[in-house]
């Protein structure tokens, strides 16, 4: 992205694309969302120049929050290099001219789809989630009119019945991602489709967490240092996924791993889903058992932002 492109764009569009009236409307929704953690604030989501379902909610939240001195990190599936992360990062570089980074520790705003970075976030950071279906009760009750009532009355029996049926049927709660949480002892909230592995990171996180659902027109938030509990039962406590082997590239344990199929004979390796975390570790000299595998070394790792 050249400076010239940015200039061309700024002639036709406002900083961060959205007009100021739209930003104000989103900002007001964010303030309410922060005041009532876990409650989904309706907002007049705009048509964005990328499709609904591709991060329009996260993009609108980021566009309303971002300032010219922010440093942005954009990830999808934990990685800075996935196609949609590349496209959305390009959008913000073009419309704001802010600095982008892949380093978690250097970012002031991190927009994410489906993951929370492995490295603990700090008080100076804001994590913006892209959310497809903000309503945690939606799969149990398709009607907004009904689910809104359930939240109003704090009537979450249906959710507990569903989780309990899972246990009766499968011997465990068969939800592996978008695992519902209770925020500040009041609202049941959808954490977005992050693996349940990431749920504990939300609890008492130092960073502010903002959630944007563009198509469904909802914004919600978890302020820093807020109680976030994954729903469970006393006799069936919440558990996160465990991997039997460490990252094949950096040897990290207790991180979320992607399974990569190497051939058609069952050969596979597990590597960190958080690509920045993995690279940092390798730079520090941590090596996994397949770090020397040719497939593991980039022939074309794509330009870095």
């Amino acid at each position: 992205m050249t400076g010239q492109d940015t200039d061309m764009f700024s002639e036709h569009y406002n900083f961060a694309y959205l007009d100021e009236q739209t930003k104000r409307m989103i900002r007001r929704a964010i303030l309410k969302a922060i005041a009532v953690p876990g409650y989904q604030v309706p907002f007049a989501s705009r048509e964005m120049p990328m499709p609904y379902g591709w991060g329009t909610g996260g993009v609108q939240v980021t566009a309303a929050v971002i300032g010219s001195d922010d440093v942005l990190k954009m990830i999808d599936q934990g990685s800075d290099d996935t196609t949609n992360a590349v496209a959305l990062r390009g959008f913000f570089i073009k419309t704001t001219g802010v600095k982008a980074t892949t380093k978690t520790s250097q970012a002031t705003i991190i927009q994410t789809r489906h993951r929370i970075p492995e490295e603990p976030l700090t008080e100076n950071q804001t994590l913006v989630y892209q959310v497809p279906i903000p309503e945690p009760l939606r799969k149990l009750e398709p009607r907004e009119t009904e689910t809104r009532k359930m939240h109003a009355l704090e009537e979450y029996g249906l959710m507990h019945v569903k989780l309990y049926e899972d246990i009766a049927k499968y011997g465990e709660i068969a939800t592996t991602y978008a695992y519902p949480v209770l925020v500040n002892d009041r609202y049941v909230m959808d954490p977005s489709p992050i693996p349940k592995f990431d749920n504990p990171k939300m609890h008492e996180m130092a960073a502010l967490q903002l959630f944007g659902a563009g198509r469904e027109k909802r914004i919600y938030a978890v302020p820093p240092y807020t109680k976030v509990e994954s729903l469970d039962f006393q006799d069936y406590p919440f558990e996160i996924q465990r991997f039997e082997e460490p990252c094949a590239l950096c040897g990290a344990e207790n991180v979320y791993l992607d399974e990569v199929i190497l051939d058609d004979k069952g050969g596979r390796m597990y590597v960190c889903s958080d690509s920045d975390y993995c690279e940092e570790r390798r730079e520090q000299g941590h090596l996994g058992h397949m770090a020397a595998n040719p497939i593991a070394e980039p022939e074309n790792s794509g330009p870095r932002a």
Partner: peptide, 12 residues
């Protein structure tokens, strides 16, 4: 943006 950010941080 600066004013909003201060308000957001104040409430957060």
């Amino acid at each position: 943006q600066c004013i909003f950010k201060a308000a957001m941080n104040a409430l957060a």
